[in-house]
Design a protein around this nucleic acid. Structure first.
Lengths: 102, 102
DNA sequence: CCGGTCGCTACAGAAATTGTAGTAACGGAG
DNA sequence: CTCCGTTACTACAATTTCTGTAGCGACCGG
């Protein structure tokens, strides 16, 4: 009994990734961690979600090795997480163009 | 009374975009449309979601001018949607690397 | 011992999603 | 004309997810 990835029957990496990132607040959390580590409550206040779900998403992101908790600094992106973020950075610029178009 | 974007108080483009893309199935739908237009049912079967939610997401994506419905061909990405997709394409390759790491 | 912060959890109510069924419009075959 | 298949899409109850609030246990400085 293989642990099925939500919404995907194949388990292909891209599907697993899209599934992970396509959950409420996940992209937003990665985005909030783009510059510096954040504390749990700090992160929660920044995005305005319930602690329950912030904790769930952080657990998922930690399991995916994209985020880690440093006792001194707080939550931060791992090396893998920073790689992912780098792929997403162009979105920032593009979103400005998109906003003008709609 | 400004129409508030879910989870965002600022309405900044990047937040609106992250909010839109951070909804269940949205990223997946864009991904499924990467190569060729798809019919409603075809899309629904491919991703395995309920018609209700497929229709909601398509409506949001159409409002965001990322997807359009061509009566002959089916649903397809707009020029804007293809631009966004292009930003996401590197994810495919990266996801393979990520899958090995976790 | 007290008061603050830390990550995190419990839980009831609200909202989103699912799964199934079905609608209305169109087109082609008989 | 009727029948059949296809199209996009909707209705609705059951289920799952998320929210909002409160609070726990551990730690630390005064």
């Amino acid at each position: 009994m293989v642990k099925r990835v939500r919404g995907s029957t194949t388990g292909r990496p891209i599907m697993r990734l899209l599934d992970l990132l396509g959950r409420r607040w996940t992209l937003r959390i990665v985005w909030e961690l783009r510059e510096e580590p954040r504390r749990f409550r700090e992160l929660q206040d920044a995005i305005g979600a319930s602690p329950t779900i912030v904790n769930s998403r952080l657990a998922e992101l930690r399991e995916a090795k994209l985020v880690e908790l440093d006792a001194d600094a707080g939550y931060r992106l791992t090396a893998l997480g920073r790689e992912l973020l780098r792929l997403f950075l162009p979105l920032h610029l593009w979103s400005e163009k998109w906003a003008k178009a709609i």
